[in-house]
Simulated scan of single mutants.
Amino acid sequence: MLELLLALWPLFALIVAGYLLRRADFPSEAFWPGAERLNYFVLFPALLFSSLAMAPLDNPALPRLALAVGLGLGLAWLALLLVRRMCGWPAGRFGAFTQGTLRFNTYLGLAAVGSLYGAPGLGLAALLLALMVPAVNLLSVWSLTAERGVSARSLLLPIIKNPLILACLAGALVNLCGLGLPGGTDRLLALLAAASLPLGLLCVGAALKPEQLRGEVSALGISSAIRLLGMPLLAGLVAHALQLPALESSVLVLFFALPTAPTAYVLTRQLGGDSQLMAGIITLQTLLAAVSLPLLLRWLG
């Protein structure tokens, strides 16, 4: 347990630092949106590209990993549809709960995988992102626009333009073509990638809104329990049923146990969803993950 805490506490220390820095208005309020854009469009794609470009794509466990992702997300999505029918949620509320259940904080996930499992874990995490990011974005957009009706173009365009998805596709293409990262390209990408995770975790902390925890206590608690406890349990059962190797099982369960992504708030607000509920879900899940993740990882061994 001590080793897990030593690996994870610096990650949450950066999240707390980001929150305190924004509260202190340092360096300025205008800094954080620019930092998020730099990370989202440049630094983080560099990390994903380099990880996938060097990942072992011929790993025989990968087809099972793809099947596990499909089963896990599919079962969770069917459960959400059933609960929506029972509770009569409007699209705005349904979209917030969908993102609180299916979306995940990629910055925290990759930082945790890198600390615990090193380069092999990061390669598998990049592959997981290539599988999960398009599916989760598609379901998030659909859930927020279900009542208004949505065209195939409006569903697919955000996915096609997503820099994380493009980086994953490009890295996989370079890998499959055997091009490698010659001429110091690997070092350049490593420098960009090294800046991504610390800046991303600071931005996660800066986006926290504790004031949004005052309302809808039961809804926030249920969403957090499902995401931080129910989803990793589902992933663990799927991994066991498919007999995934130990490292693949651990990385899969870890990603299903992450708190939801701060970018879910932006998407919810843009598409007219319940942004106040979404902000509360993001904040509470991120705070509770400081306790749930070490306990989960100890359970994983």
Rank of each mutant, 00 (worst) to 15 (best):
M1V: 14
M1I: 10
L4Q: 12
L6H: 10
L8W: 08
L8D: 11
W9H: 14
P10D: 10
F12P: 09
A13W: 09
V16A: 15
Y19L: 13
A24W: 07
F26A: 13
F26E: 13
A30C: 08
R37E: 11
F41Q: 12
A46K: 03
F49Y: 15
A55R: 02
L57P: 03
D58F: 05
N59M: 12
N59Y: 10
P60T: 13
R64T: 10
G74C: 01
L75R: 02
W77S: 09
A79T: 15
L82F: 14
W89M: 15
R93I: 03
F94P: 13
G95W: 00
A96V: 01
A96N: 01
T106N: 06
Y107W: 12
L110V: 02
G121K: 11
G123V: 01
A125P: 06
L127D: 04
L128Q: 01
L128M: 07
L129S: 02
L131V: 00
T145C: 05
E147A: 06
V150C: 12
L156E: 00
I159F: 02
K161F: 01
L166K: 02
A167T: 00
A167W: 01
A170F: 11
N175T: 11
L176A: 14
L179E: 09
P182A: 11
P182R: 13
G183V: 05
G183I: 01
D186T: 08
R187P: 12
L188S: 10
L189A: 01
L192N: 04
L192S: 07
P198R: 04
G200Q: 01
G205W: 04
P210A: 04
E211I: 06
A219K: 02
S223A: 15
S224A: 15
S224P: 08
S224V: 09
A225G: 15
M231H: 11
L244W: 02
A246M: 10
A246H: 12
A246S: 13
V251T: 00
V253P: 08
V253K: 07
F256V: 03
F256I: 03
A257H: 10
L258I: 12
T260L: 04
P262G: 03
T263K: 04
A264G: 03
R269T: 12
Q270H: 14
G273E: 13
L288Y: 06
L293W: 00
P294Y: 06
L295A: 15
L297R: 07
